[in-house]
Design a protein around this nucleic acid. Structure first.
Length: 937
RNA sequence: GCCGACUUAGCUCAGUGGUAGAGCGCUCGCUUCACACGCGAUAGGUCACAAGUUCAAAUCUUGUAGUCGGCACCA
């Protein structure tokens, strides 16, 4: 078989996804087992305006790994994809489009605006879904949902109406967060405080009427003084006591405003006197209500001043107005001072512009009932389980406990229009349809509320609206089959915006938990350690990474990040995994180049079958003496048995790699069960590279590449192929393309390797059974023996490197060891000679070699390489001293512990014994090294 | 102001009580018939600092410093 020398990701990425999708592997219906357990995840719906960024790539990688493993394990698996309609983003695009044509939303009207929005969504809305195909995301496209789909929209209407009818949703006039650029209100969670060191605190003097006194107030927003309707002081503040009840002549305006007393004012802070602007500040608003103050709105929706600000200011932008107010105060001699002041500015999370607190009539949702449901779920069942639990669970519950009403209306057109109608008198009729509203209004003439709902209002229903719940239909097959979902994988930034709200609404409307577990990923930071952003230009486009390193390398790199930890983007790390992909490719290439006469066949890998076969062969007369645990006995019968059964003849190396493989499989499964993706990746990386490539392939290489055709060689070829096949399956959830590409090339692959739930599907690694790992195949004896062999080879290599022995020089290796250790080395003589590049192996119980030898010790062996003429005695002495030093340091430390009576008395006996054993080992080695050194000196 | 996280090799990061780890980089040697995106061998760390608990602390407790995050406040 011709196979390229290096892995070319593009080739593999082109062909497989389409097949997987067309053949329905992503849909839960592929599962043929009627009793299969379900496994479901809903995707955090990306913005329909968006394109894939690193955060998506990370989250999708983790979700896909979870889903692919569960699918391979035979679960009826659904990963449901979708997009949300992103009110503000789309609105902004269409406004921009209109502006280029010299039009505005108002001139074209709502209908035309929405027509354009839908057209835009049709044209560009698939960008991200196409990119997800590139990622290899195994989502069920047949269940793709969009938040403005008809059924999901019905769900929104139903939920709004129910909450209204129950009194949770109401309309009212409040101070809200107004974004003057997007010209809409946004909710508290969409406001981001930005600390600015260059703020100014401006001290303004207000003259008191019928007095020559002035009151000084301080403000960071001087322009709002145009909307002041009072000055407040603390009632017990001696400085101002006599002024309470008097009147201020508000400069720059013709207005007179009262001086009021209120406990809210902190006499210690600033001047102790506060200007009150009820229509432009939440605290002032509350205070204004208490004192019955006028609420004077002085700004337009674009944050320019309106007529209430006075003719001098009308039309001016808020910041221009600020300058002008300061100038005029200065001219009037009423500007006391300006101080530098660190302030935190509320900014719009999306457009970064400064939010203006503004008095406005909006729809709100009181969350008290739903909040209690969510808190209750956490208190009683600990659901959802956050991964990592710290600090996410605490952040989540603390936020819920302090939850305020949610501003749900938006002054936008793209989205779910609020199902509220008004008659001419301004009476409101909330209803599921215009007809219902009209009936309720007794056929009065009605106009619908202009606003739409917050996009997050519909996203909040995602955990059940996606399964068909729409208010009218409240039970569907999918809802029963897949809800609650098993896990939600998302970013820290939307715990409040989305996760918590989804938990609350699902609890209230379906009476279920939305999901059991929540995995909170960290943030992928730019190379500068800051969050990636367009303005910083530190972003890394996942698609560029796919092109440069391949999808699989990018995926497994992302999965290698510790769960929940932030990671600084680093090209050299992704290169590691590109190299890893190439390593897998080449290991497979090697196996395939030597695969004549071989096939993937699990009967080659089962030492248990071997034992059973031995039992059968040795017959009845010996069966009574047979003991599986009796290693001596096995040693005796194995060679006999193997003579006739090359298929069942497992070497120590075979037993070792089988043991390592099964440990790996167990570890990978355990790690993924705990969402420790990085642990799983690390185990796979080191198993494949270190155990399989560096050792196993090298150990069996001679046998496999032998040109002598015989059953023994073919058995060895089959074994390595079978190990490889198992490794590919373990890697598949992280590296879907590479593993499918290679798996399909293996000989004797068929759907018989599938999990039982997929026996009719065409052969694909996607549906192969995921290795669970078999603790019974862990062979500690083989691992210890193999380790002894590896130690010897490593020590010899070390001597060779230090003594600068040419690769072509092949010394003789002398090993002094106990008889049973000698047996191990004898059994692996060929491998030791090859990997240590030696001519011959001499085994003995006692060391007896020429003085001109380089030496080393391992746990089980004393090694000597006679190097007549090659040895540099000085170098050898320092080499041995180096070894000795290390051992003696350890010896000292351990002896220190053992001589501590407290340790021996109080530490677990097991631990003490462990250390005693280790000391004994060290002593043997130290003695040998000392003797060697003596001999040299 | 409150709460929390982090500080480990030159760099980026794993590691929740018992011999300090990985990848990259550095040094040395290899065109060894899968792979130079490779192979082999080294070097490199008072685990931020201080005190405490413990037979034993990178790991638990407290404090200090620095970095970052969330919330509150923001006249």
């Amino acid at each position: 078989m011709e196979i390229a020398k290096a892995y070319n990701p593009k080739e593999a990425e082109e062909s497989h996804y389409q097949k997987w999708e067309e053949r329905g592997y992503f849909a839960p219906e592929i599962n043929e087992n009627a009793d299969a357990m379900k496994y479901s995840i809903v995707i955090p719906p990306p913005n329909v305006t968006g394109s894939l960024h690193m955060g998506h790539a990370l989250q999708h990688t983790l979700m896909d790994a979870l889903v692919r493993r569960k699918r391979m394990q035979g679960f009826k698996t659904l990963w449901l994809p979708g997009t949300d309609h992103a009110s503000i983003s789309v609105q902004r695009k269409i406004v921009e489009q209109l502006r280029e044509e010299g039009k505005t939303p108002q001139t074209v009207g709502r209908e035309e605006f929405l027509r354009r929005a839908w057209a835009w969504k049709e044209l560009y809305g698939n960008t991200i879904t196409e990119q997800m195909r590139r990622e290899g995301a195994s989502v069920d496209w047949s269940r793709h949902r969009f938040t403005m789909d008809e059924s999901l929209s019905c769900a929104v209407i139903e939920v709004f109406c129910r909450l209204y009818e129950e009194g949770w949703i109401y309309r009212g006039k409040r101070i809200v967060n107004w974004c003057p650029v997007d010209k809409t209100v946004i909710s508290d969670v969409e406001v981001k405080d930005e600390t600015r060191k260059d703020g100014k605190l401006v001290y303004l003097q207000y003259p008191v009427k019928d007095s020559d006194k002035k009151i000084t107030v301080a403000t960071t927003r001087p322009e709002t003084m145009l909307g002041d309707t009072a000055v407040a002081v603390n009632p017990s503040d001696e400085r101002y006591k006599d002024l309470i009840g008097k009147t201020i002549l508000l400069p720059l305006t013709n207005r007179e405003i009262p001086i009021v007393a209120d406990e809210y004012v902190d006499a210690e802070f600033g001047t102790g006197a506060v200007k009150i602007t009820p229509a432009h500040d939440p605290n002032d608003y509350e205070l204004g209500l208490r004192h019955n103050l006028e609420q004077l709105v002085i700004m337009n929706d674009d944050a320019t001043m309106n007529a209430n600000a006075g003719a001098d200011f009308e039309g001016l932008d808020r910041f221009k107005a600020r300058e002008k107010v300061i100038e005029q105060f200065e001219e009037l001699g009423l500007l006391e001072k300006i101080e530098d002041y660190e302030i935190s500015l509320p900014t719009c999370e999306r457009c970064k512009n400064i939010i203006e607190p503004l008095l406005s009539e909006q729809w709100f949702c009181n969350m008290d009932e739903m909040r209690e449901m969510a808190l209750d779920l956490m208190r009683r069942e600990g659901v959802p389980h956050f991964y990592p639990q710290i600090p996410n669970e605490k952040v989540y519950t603390a936020w819920l406990e302090n939850l305020k009403d949610w501003t749900i209306s938006r002054q936008l057109w793209w989205g779910h229009q609020i199902p509220a109608w008004y008659d001419r008198a301004g009476n409101v009729f909330v209803a599921r349809s215009f007809e219902d509203a009209k009936a309720a209004a007794q056929n009065a003439e009605l106009t619908q509320d202009n606003d739409v709902l917050d996009t997050w209002f519909s996203s909040a229903l995602w955990a059940f609206s996606t399964f068909g719940w729409n208010g009218e239909v409240t039970e569907t097959q999918d809802l029963n089959a897949f809800s609650p979902t098993d896990v939600l994988v998302t970013g820290r930034d939307i715990i409040f915006l989305w996760v918590s709200r989804m938990i609350m609404t699902t609890q209230k409307f379906v009476g279920k938990k939305a999901f059991e577990d929540v995995v909170i990923t960290g943030t992928v930071l730019g190379k500068d350690g800051k969050p990636m952003s367009k303005s910083r230009k530190n972003g890394v486009d996942p698609l560029d990474m796919f092109d440069k390193f391949g999808v699989d390398a990018t995926r497994i790199y992302l999965a290698s990040i510790a769960t929940g930890a932030d990671i600084r983007w680093n090209d050299t790390l992704i290169e590691t995994y590109r190299n890893f992909a190439n390593k897998i490719w080449n290991a497979t290439r090697f196996c395939l180049m030597n695969s004549d006469g071989a096939q993937v066949d699990y009967t080659y890998l089962n030492p248990k079958a071997e034992v059973a076969e031995i039992k059968r062969l040795i017959g009845d007369e010996l069966i009574d003496d047979f003991d599986e645990e009796d290693e001596e006995f096995l040693d005796k019968v194995e060679p006999e048995f193997a003579k006739d059964n090359p298929k069942e003849n497992l070497s120590i190396a075979d037993r070792w790699i089988i043991s390592r493989l099964n440990k790996t499989a167990l570890d990978v499964n355990r790690a993924l069960d705990r969402y420790e993706f990085h642990t799983a990746v690390s185990r796979l990386y080191h198993f494949f590279w270190d155990d399989f490539c560096d050792w196993y392939i090298e150990l069996v290489k001679d046998e496999i590449t032998s040109e002598t055709v015989n059953t023994k060689r073919d058995a060895a070829r089959s074994r390595i192929l079978t190990i490889l096949e198992q490794a590919l399956r373990l890697l598949h959830p992280f590296m879907p393309y590479l593993t499918e590409e290679l798996w399909q090339k293996l000989p004797n692959i068929s759907n018989e390797l599938h999990n039982a739930a997929y026996s009719s599907a065409e052969q694909t690694i996607m549906l192969a059974d995921f290795p669970a790992g078999d603790a019974g195949l862990i062979d500690e004896r083989a691992e210890a023996e193999m380790q002894a062999v590896i130690d010897v080879i490593s020590k010899v290599r070390n001597i060779r490197a230090e003594m600068q022995i040419k690769p072509s020089d092949k010394p003789t290796i002398h090993i002094a060891a106990a008889p049973n250790a000698q047996r191990i080395f004898a059994q692996n003589e060929a491998q030791i000679l090859k990997l240590a590049r030696a001519e011959s192996l001499v085994l003995s119980e006692k060391s007896d070699v020429p003085k001109a030898s380089a030496k080393a010790v391992t746990t089980l062996a004393e090694i000597a390489l006679p190097l007549e003429g090659l040895i540099d005695f000085e170098k050898e002495i320092s080499r041995l001293e180096n070894q000795l030093n290390k051992l003696e340091t350890e010896q000292q430390r351990l002896n220190g512990q053992l001589s501590n009576a407290n340790f021996v008395d109080r530490a677990p006996a097991e631990k003490v014994q462990e250390i005693r054993d280790r000391v004994a080992e060290i002593e043997t080695q130290v003695t040998a090294l000392r003797q060697n050194l003596e001999a040299l000196k």
